[in-house]
């Protein structure tokens, strides 16, 4: 039954990966900004939730505060860091370095403010129960998968059915066209950041309860989001979702064969091969130059 247990575990981890990856993919797909500080958004949201919740204000207040923090951070990054750099027509890499720098600063700031050690959100929901003989699933696993589904569907409807969503999709396809229609690419970009950053909140909150938090968490989150975005195909939100689940499953099922220190290598070997053999990703458009 080990494989079934690992598959279920993989789905839970994959759901969290998918949620963060979809946010990154949305931002990256729409704005082409290599938002490496997306991992910092995650850490920030997780710690704010932890803080508010542990002060006794309750889960709802915690989620609200985490959302405000995540969206606020994303929008500020876009306005204060990326917008000025893009005004100089700074290269894609200039943006990356700035973003990475902010990521380092946030990680250490969080460490100073909230302490550098391990913290965890205590909830009975993280306790697994035996659902089948030898197969344990925690209630949070179902919540994680459900969240991934609900948020993805919500995002999908938003992008298809609202004017703002259509604008965002247009931004991804052709920023020049946006101007022709009298929309501001800058404003749309800010919306993309707000939305993309908001999407990390459920994953951040659930991670706080299942795996626990430390300030250095952002790095791994970021690497996985990037891998999922590329494997899924840049610009394809659905691709990021599928790839997020896929990477979670691959990481977990790899334990059947390999020691766990190879699991990250498995993820990135998949990424490397994808770029070499199918750079457009699962659902993306052609990318080779």
């Amino acid at each position: 039954m080990l494989w079934l247990q690992l598959a279920i575990t993989g789905l839970q981890v994959g759901a969290l990966y998918a949620l963060t990856a979809v946010g990154f993919s949305l931002i990256f797909g729409c704005t082409r900004i290599f938002h490496f500080a997306h991992g910092a958004t995650f850490v920030l949201a997780a710690y704010v939730f932890y803080y508010v919740e542990s002060q006794g204000y309750g889960t709802a207040a915690g989620v609200l505060a985490a959302s405000v923090a995540a969206v606020g951070f994303g929008v500020l990054m876009d306005r204060l860091v990326y917008a000025p750099i893009q005004r100089h027509e700074g290269s894609f890499f200039t943006v990356f370095v700035a973003s990475f720098g902010i990521g380092i600063a946030v990680q250490n700031l969080v460490g100073m403010v909230f302490g550098r050690s391990f913290v965890t959100v205590t909830t009975p929901l993280s306790r697994s129960v035996e659902v089948l003989d030898g197969v344990y699933v925690s209630p949070l696993a179902w919540i994680a998968v459900a969240c991934a589904g609900v948020f993805f569907l919500g995002l999908w409807f938003f992008l298809r059915r609202t004017n703002l969503g259509t604008g965002l999709r247009a931004l991804a396809d052709n920023p020049e066209l946006i101007r022709v229609f009298g929309l501001s690419p800058r404003l749309l970009s800010t919306y993309a950041f707000a939305l993309g950053s908001f999407l990390v909140v459920p994953a951040a909150v659930i991670t706080g309860a299942t795996a626990g938090l430390n300030p250095a968490l952002g790095h791994h989150v970021m690497l996985i989001s990037l891998a999922a975005t590329i494997v899924g195909g840049i610009g394809s939100i659905g691709g990021a979702l599928v790839a997020g689940f896929g990477l979670g499953l691959a990481e977990s099922l790899a334990l059947l064969q390999f020691d766990s220190q190879w699991t990250e290598a498995v993820t990135f070997a998949i990424l490397f091969l994808f770029i070499l053999l199918r750079p457009s990703g699962l659902f993306g458009r052609a990318a080779t130059s």
Binding site: F28, R32, F34, F92, F93, F96, L223, L226, A227, I230, I234, Q261, W262, E264, A265, T267, F268, A269, L271, F272, I275, L276, P279, A287, T288, S289
Partner: peptide, 26 residues
Amino acid sequence: ALPALRVRGEYFVAASLGLQVLAVTV
């Protein structure tokens, strides 16, 4: 060099990132 010949921009960055993570494991 392999990915450098095939792709540019963020794809190449991601490929080099993949190589970096693989190398650390090795």
